[in-house]
Nucleic acid binder design. Structure first.
Lengths: 166, 166
DNA sequence: TTGGAATGTCAACAAGGCTGACATATTCTG
DNA sequence: CAGAATATGTCAGCCTTGTTGACATTCCAA
């Protein structure tokens, strides 16, 4: 550290502070996924199913290709998950109207029910954390997370908010 | 939303805000692991190896059981990873002095070199994010993450800071 | 001294990533 | 229209990393 016992203003960049941040991410992510994981385990699903359900819910009618880009996995990997969700009647795959090569993905009633169950649990944890930390902490939390994303990921992330809610 | 168009002070608890937080965690975690993942892929290791190396570095001489509790996996799962690290000469496993059932784990020179390479990459990303977001954001970031952990995880997390550096 | 608890290892299985190859339907382009 | 490009689905096979079950060793307390 060139600054030596540098000013308070720079303290947050010490290796020690960075390490704490790294470990906080590790442990917090476990907490973040713990509640949905429990629900999913009962139904013999995994995180992959959760992610698919979440983003289909967020962007109803999205295409397979779209989902692929958001999730950052291969189509073979996504397909396996999607197939089981369709077989189980949680997701519906409709041939595209304008482009018949595409498949538009929607949650069925049952799919929406599971989505709600999962996101309720996850939101509850997030809500509790937000409440404990307070509104200013929340703003900082989001700023750091956004700065930590790759550019591609940040684009995906921002695009979701602009998404036309139909 | 019982508050209706509630005061600014409560805005951060809307479902929309919570959802953004959830998605931010998802995308940010990908960024968080991206750099180490690239380095590990070259060497045919995975995240599990990274985690083991990280926490052995943090608490040299730790036992398998200890590491188990920190990582939250089964001992069989950890053992596989540990075995390959030992075979490759990155980790040394010494029979415990007082209790011969235990194994004390240490990084070798080569292990420390890899640890440094991985943590340099990850710290660099964290440093950049911290710099972009600023010190107040960092404080909030940490507060929210800590509030998101399970109690057990938070205890593990806090214990690491108290760890006697030998 | 002996039986239970703690610690660690080995074997086998499953989920969910990955690559590669290939089939099909559809759309676009020259 | 012919052929290239695109979107999707599927099969096979591999790897990492979770899981459970069985077992060996070591320690400790009754």
């Amino acid at each position: 550290m060139a600054e030596g016992a540098g000013g308070q203003a720079l303290l947050f960049l010490t290796d020690e502070q960075l390490r704490k941040g790294i470990e906080a991410m590790f442990f917090a992510y476990r907490g973040f996924t713990a509640d949905p994981d429990r629900i999913l385990a009962e139904k013999s699903y995994g995180r992959a199913h959760h992610r698919a359900i979440h983003f289909i819910h967020r962007a109803p009618g999205t295409t397979v290709n779209n989902l692929l880009a958001t999730l950052g996995v291969t189509k073979q990997s996504l397909n396996r998950v999607l197939r089981s969700l369709i077989e189980d009647g949680l997701v519906e795959s409709r041939v595209g109207r304008s482009d018949k090569r595409e498949r538009n993905l929607h949650l069925t009633e049952a799919g929406q029910a599971l989505e709600r169950e999962l996101s309720d649990a996850q939101r509850e944890r997030m809500r509790a954390a937000y409440r404990t930390a307070g509104p200013e902490a929340v703003a900082g939390f989001r700023q750091v997370l956004e700065a930590m994303m790759d550019d591609d990921q940040r684009r995906q992330y921002e695009r979701l908010s602009e998404a036309p809610r139909r």
